[in-house]
Design a protein around this nucleic acid. Structure first.
Lengths: 202, 202
DNA sequence: CGGTAGGGATAGGGTTCT
DNA sequence: TAGAACCCTATCCCTACC
């Protein structure tokens, strides 16, 4: 009827990956609207992009969605094995890493704090943070929740303890996603905790 | 972020329904502030409540929001199946019915049923039409707008064509909401038209 | 500014096709 | 039979409008 299973071409897949690299995961409509990819992807919907990306990621991580589900149920303690097939993981990381510097060009998280950002973090614990990531890790550490705080708590902590001149919601959300993807954080039931392997880096 | 899909529990849903029953639809912040529900719903926002209620209502009426939209556009033949899931419909009716007697106590229009209406399960469809409802239907019919008149036009029509001794604004607004909820009216872009399925009841 | 309504996007479970 | 492609819809997000 409508679409007899339109297989993804290599070109489309490349465009999708580039799009995720540029705009981050979860920005399917944005990617689709980007003139850089819209021509190649014009026969795809935002949902198609989402589904395809899921296939790519999950395949790289587990081999298939089915295995992924089984793995999540059967082995609650062991996370994904990054050594399996790192390509998609790399792409995910890369993509999310790029988010920071992208959205509106205003995020610029790693810019070594401008001359005197006109707003000094009032209650910073570890001096001038140049990275939102560090703030997030601090939040998780200080919040001391049994299974880790959830995203809202983290966001609230940051908003209450730092003077930010912008809305941190999306940025924090992006970075949580990123830190989870690269394995720095472990996400369980919407709660984030710092991976044991990274505790010493905090 | 914090909750990429925090599914509603049965308990939360019950609290929401009770809240609507008590305070009426559209009073999401009020429901959230009511100590009777605030503990159960503490992880929800007023917007969450609004969305969930929309989902409950629309699911009961049409099966899903998508189907509802499709039904509004085409498919003149198939309407909602009242026998499908009447519970939410009933609750919607009940809730809105209570609104009438609630706000300022001045609405209190015509209880079509005897005094003991308070403990009686209301009939959702063909339900308690008030005289104002009939006037509203007349207004919509006579105004003959392409996609139906909006609330203001309906109100103006009533004020111009009937001598009412009270301010009809809130009352008309309530009844429009009610008639929309029970499926008698279909609301699209602030305009109201009579559902094809109820045209013959006018 | 805070709240609500409504449109619309996303996430994830489920289904169909190959 | 597995996996890719696609569907369904609860939930979440954005914006206009009071």
């Amino acid at each position: 009827m409508g679409a007899p299973k339109q297989k993804w071409t290599a070109e489309e897949e490349t465009a999708l990956k580039a799009g995720v690299l540029k705009h981050g995961t979860g920005k399917w409509r944005t990617i689709l609207s980007d003139p850089e990819y819209s021509s190649v992807l014009k026969s795809r919907s935002n949902v198609d992009l989402k589904d395809k990306w899921r296939n790519i990621s999950v395949t790289a991580l587990w081999g298939s969605r089915k295995k992924a589900k089984l793995a999540q149920k059967g082995t609650p303690t062991s996370g994904p094995r990054p050594d399996d097939n790192a390509t998609a993981i790399t792409i995910v990381s890369l993509a999310n890493g790029h988010i920071g510097g992208d959205v509106g060009g205003q995020l610029m998280l790693d810019a070594p704090s401008p001359p005197e950002a006109s707003c000094e973090p009032p209650r910073a614990f570890k001096g001038p943070f140049t990275s939102v990531d560090k703030i997030i890790l601090e939040a998780i550490t200080n919040l001391k929740r049994p299974f880790g705080p959830d995203g809202k708590s983290i966001l609230r902590y940051i908003e209450e303890n730092f003077k930010m001149q912008q809305d941190m919601k999306r940025l924090v959300s992006s970075r949580l996603k990123y830190l989870t993807n690269v394995g720095t954080l472990v996400k369980t039931k919407h709660k984030y905790r710092i991976s044991p392997n990274y505790m010493d880096e905090v």
